[in-house]
Structures are given as C-alpha cells and as structure tokens.
Design a protein around this nucleic acid. Structure first.
Lengths: 204, 204
DNA sequence: CCGGGTCTTGTCCATCGGTACAATGTCAGC
DNA sequence: GCTGACATTGTACCGATGGACAAGACCCGG
C-alpha cells in the first residue's frame, strides 16, 4: 500500500507532490518495475520516456496509478486512462488537489483535470453515436434480450461479465448466445463480433 | 448538500440505495427540478423518461449527479457522463459501493462501473485521434510471426485453424498469442479483434 | 384453456483458450 | 564465444465456452 512517485532517475523536484505525501518514496523507472506490486499507489511523470508502457504494466500488476503532466492535454489524458491510469492532472497541482485525487482513486474512482474531462467525454460521445449505428440488419431476427446480449458480448465482455451487467445468470447468457449463434448461423462470439463490426467476412 | 433520489413518481423500491443513504429524500422528476440546488447530490434512475435532460439541467445548476441503471451499458454510461453525471452504476449495487461512489464524486471524481470504464475509455480513446497515433503502431511492437498470428486470429479463426494455416503447432500459436496479449496489454482474442478492427473504421 | 414464443435457470460434459514451467535450435551482435 | 531476441514445441492445469437435455414462469393470440 506504499505511495510512490516515479520520475526520470535523478529528478529531485516535485515540490507540491512531496508536500502532499511527505512519507512517499521516489523511484526511478527501473526500481518501479522491480518494486511496485498490488495495491501500491504510484504517481508517474509523463515526462518520463515510456511512461505509458510503465503505467500499463504496473496497472496490470494491480497497482493504482496516476499520471502527472507538465503540460496536460486531453489526448495525453486519454492515453493515460487507456493505459490503465486512474488519475491525470497537472504535475504542479496543489497538495490539496493531489490528496483529493488520492481519495478518489483509492475508491475505484477516476480523477481527471476537470476541463479535460469535458473534452474527453464529449469526444467519446460523438464517436459512440456513430458506433451505435453499426448494429441493425444483423440483429433483426433476434429477440429483445438476445440483441442486448449480442451487443454486450460484441464489446468483448465474458459471459460472466455480461451476466453481471444484465443482472441474469451466466447460464441464461449462454442460452441467449446459443440462440444467437443458431439464428445467425455462426459458431462463436468471435464471428459475432466480426459480423457486427463489418458485414463482410464469412469463411467455410 | 442534501442527498436525493429521483425516480419515476411512486417508485418505492431502491432497497439497496435506501440502505446506503437512510436519511436521503425520494423525489419525483417535477419536485427535483423545483427543489434541487447547488451542492445537492442527486441519484437519478435511468429508467426515468427524460433522465438525460434532467441530469443536464441539474448539473448545470451545480448539483452533483449520478445515474443508476437497471441494465448498464457503455453507451448509456457515456450518455450520462456527457450529460454531466459524475457517477454511473447498476441500480442494485450494494450499499458499500454506493457510499464509495458518493465519496468519489464528492471529491471531484468520476465513478463508473469498472467493467464499463474500460469500454468507455477505450471508445473515447479511439474517438479522439488516439486512434491514429496508437492503432497504427499496435502491431509495431510485435515480431514478424506474432503479427501474422494476430492477423489470422483477428479473422475469427480458432487456434487449431491458425495452426493449420501457418503450418505450426497449436502450442506455438498459443505461445505467440500469449506474447501478443502481454505486449498489447489485453486479456484475450476478443480484445485483440476489437483493437484491430477499430483501427480501420474511423470517421472523417 | 391451450399452444407457442420468450426469458429464465439448472446440470452435465466435451472442448477450447490462456497460462505456468519448461526445453531446443537459430541467428545477430558485442 | 557468449548473450539475447525469436521461433518452435512439449506437458499440465484450470477457467471459459458452447452444446445437450430439461424445465418453470410469463404472456399473447386463437
């Protein structure tokens, strides 16, 4: 559960951050990969080369990471979140804000520099509007519930996850999937995805 | 700073939520528009007609709102966030989770049902030129052989079929796939397909 | 009231998919 | 010559997946 800061080796700055977490440790990228484990909270400076990849591995390892940038942009914010980061803010944010971030990300939340959040969400929304149109003819022959299952499965979720999301049993998900496969003449979820994203494909 | 729940008039359910916030008030949409003000924390049921518009006005008024859905989807999540909501979760989430959400959104954070978060962020990432920057280099980090496997797998073929097509063992296919998953930071072939198919479908 | 369609769940089982812990051979570069 | 990246394959394990067989609940039209 250690609090750690990761920056270019030898970077002794980060005064605001130090102020917010006096007891934290400062690490270089190498040490980070070696020492960070599940539950640790890491703060990565985006000035660091390969920060994205670092965040990705640390996140998969179960660490909770935030990215601090000297010049925040919505693109970098998204990149960070996509890499698994849970927070994104200006590197020189005031200590109170940093501590606030800490609270948020410690509770499964996401914290992003507010102005950026608007852009991020806005962009995503526009894009998904287009994505929503993809469904259509393929799903015509399916029932209400089957369509719902098909769409969620096509997002890449497992049966268990679909079950949770639709508040039904995994068994029921399988039942619907079976019907979907039969009706669409396909054999598994992979082909379902292909059928929904492109209309083409189909192999012997 | 009142905690309020807004659902269809006369909806007396929401046991889990009640449990989480015993002192909160339940309102109908009309009352909400009249009474909610700055700093109030409102929970809106997405089953409610016009929930999106409601969230939008309340948010602009300075209220902090979360949306609870009976059947959460990434699309609805984005829609909620875009309307100004700060939280999005299943309507029957356990009380501890709801209180956790409360903490997060009270600290300027965003809270979204974890499984959906990945999709939401993923969608957003693809939407804003992140697609161009990273997608093209998705396969860059892979070796010759890994790329070959990735492409065939993305066609929807099984490991056995890939093996036949590339004249290698199924075991070897698994080996390459393992490396691919690790390098791309994904967990299975479904996500690989999504990562690859979304790189060709972009908007003007 | 009855039959059909839909939604739901159950058990059982064969297979697939992903990973852990390996080994072998090749080939480029220091 | 040795090291490291790459390709290949093996055994083993276990969770995920899809199908088989079955059944109860609900609703709607005949």
């Amino acid at each position: 559960m250690a609090q750690m800061f990761i920056g270019p080796t030898g970077s002794g700055e980060m005064p605001r951050w130090r102020e917010a977490f006096p007891d934290a440790r400062m690490l270089g990228p190498q040490q980070a990969r070696a020492q960070v484990g599940e539950g640790d909270k890491v703060w990565v400076l985006s000035r660091l080369d390969g920060w994205r990849e670092l965040v990705m591995t640390l996140s998969q390892r179960g660490a909770v990471s935030s990215v601090l940038s000297q010049s925040p942009t919505s693109g970098e914010a998204l990149s960070a979140l996509n890499a698994g980061a849970r927070g994104y803010a200006h590197a020189l944010s005031p200590p109170e804000l940093l501590r606030q971030m800490d609270i948020v990300i410690s509770h499964q939340g996401i914290w992003v520099w507010p102005e950026l959040m608007t852009q991020v969400i806005g962009g995503a929304f526009r894009a998904l509007g287009g994505a929503a149109s993809l469904q259509s003819e393929v799903l015509e022959g399916l029932t209400e519930r089957e369509r719902a299952v098909a769409l969620v499965v096509a997002e890449g979720l497992s049966n268990k996850e679909v079950a949770r999301q639709l508040s039904i049993t995994e068994r029921t998900v399988k039942a619907h999937l079976g019907a979907i496969f039969r009706k669409l003449g396909i054999r598994d979820r992979m082909q379902l995805i292909l059928k929904l994203s492109h209309q083409e494909s189909e192999v012997p």
